[in-house]
Design a protein around this nucleic acid. Structure first.
Lengths: 243, 243
DNA sequence: GAGTGGTCTAGACCACTTA
DNA sequence: AAGTGGTCTAGACCACTCC
């Protein structure tokens, strides 16, 4: 009995072989789709779904009539890959440790919130769970995450969760699945308290990412703003044209 | 003879109908895939490719077992949508006019370049065409674009091109097609000359986007850095999870 | 159980590149 | 002419939601 591949495991296996350098030739050229179909014993559709994912994320590029090639991209040290990005950057990245050094939680009405989601309005007395988390990367101040959760959806948030991954917490403890996120990236000036955390002066800048997070069902579950130390943070993105 | 749809025209038509509000019901729910297949007389594959594009760009979201729904997103005023983004943001956006108010071109060796592409090194005497463009949005200083082109690939760049769209120029005049771009987003402090253009003080911040642009064939053709006025620039991105 | 989106197969033809 | 990726069809079964 031969191994059955689905698209996810197929994608993972191709990535593994690319990294182990056992798939492409010395010019970075992959075997043709027909050969890969035969090798993995999958249909054209399944194979192309897998290659499409790699292509979208910048691992490979494909040229009609010529073949598929590996795209050697940058060293991703200290850069946040948007394609891998979770909730509000809750992924522990290769060999790096992100820790929450302090966190605050309180309940506030909409009228006291200083930023709001892109496409939705609330009544002034709508309550939100406000969470502020100060986080370090390799023991160095790295980001401040300022979030508002809809209490009707998430309920109470435990103290332990605030020091771990909110994304995992919502999924495992609350059974909530985030389906998509709108992101707004800006550069803003720091207030005194955030600047102090980064050992910067007031009004020094910060790279900020505003997220509106929606459940799989399309309901807004949280909106947040993350302030990164501008000296360390780089967002990486790969853009495919001609689609 | 019925109209034949390909995926692009199908996608465009669905977008058009969504905008005209003649496709979804009052709850924002689209007809089922089977119904749309019948309506457009296309296969499941073609239809799902089209819906997949809309879904990826945040126009709709799909829920297994329930249906497809419109996602009303934000007001995109003054925000740069990464999914629509061209070369270095050369698209004239809805009703807004971007103009180049001054531009400089010179030839420099690699050794005099102050930033470099993510994954490639050049010898110190490799020459580049350096272009600096100062651009306004609605007659207000908006961005400075600092680019380096490989002369072996692009050849000479005409004066007119420098005041128009570099993307169109490469494509129409030089027959070069950009296939993909690596992007690195940061927040940086402005030097005096750039700050002056934005009517800001030296060391005020800027939202920057570094691009490495590759031809369809995988060859690096240019790398650039765009400095945006941090007060006006917002990058928008839609992220689909669970793929 | 009926209807929805998600996954996958087998096969065809087209557009492009290379020789 | 042969080989490559790009597009598209027809059909099947699965997982999930709703009644």
């Amino acid at each position: 009995m031969q191994k059955q591949w689905d698209i996810d495991s197929l994608t993972a296996d191709i990535v593994k072989r690319i990294k182990k350098q056992t798939l492409a030739d010395k010019n970075g050229k992959l075997p043709s789709e027909r050969k890969l179909m035969a090798y993995y014993n999958v249909s054209r559709y399944a194979l192309r779904q897998a290659l499409g994912k790699l292509s979208k994320n910048g691992y490979i590029y494909q040229i009609q009539g010529r073949g598929s090639y590996i795209h050697e991209h940058h060293d991703q040290t200290n850069s946040i890959n948007q394609s891998d990005l979770g909730f509000t950057e809750d992924l522990a990245r290769e060999g790096k440790s992100i820790q929450t050094v302090s966190a605050f939680q309180r309940i506030v009405p909409f009228s006291e919130i200083d930023f709001s989601p892109g496409n939705q309005q609330f009544s002034d007395d709508q309550l939100f769970v406000e969470i502020e988390r100060f986080r370090t990367l390799e023991n160095k101040p790295y980001l401040v995450e300022h979030s508002y959760y809809l209490p009707e959806i998430v309920g109470e948030i435990s103290e332990e969760a605030m020091y771990g991954s909110m994304f995992d917490y919502l999924s495992k403890e609350k059974g909530l699945t985030v389906g998509f996120i709108d992101k707004f990236i800006r550069c803003e000036l720091l207030t005194e308290s955030y600047a102090t955390f980064f050992h910067l002066e007031t009004n020094m800048p910060s790279l900020t990412v505003r997220d509106d997070s929606y459940l799989r069902e399309g309901e807004l579950v949280a909106f947040s703003k993350v302030y990164y130390d501008y000296r360390d943070a780089t967002l990486f993105m790969h853009k495919k044209l001609l689609e």
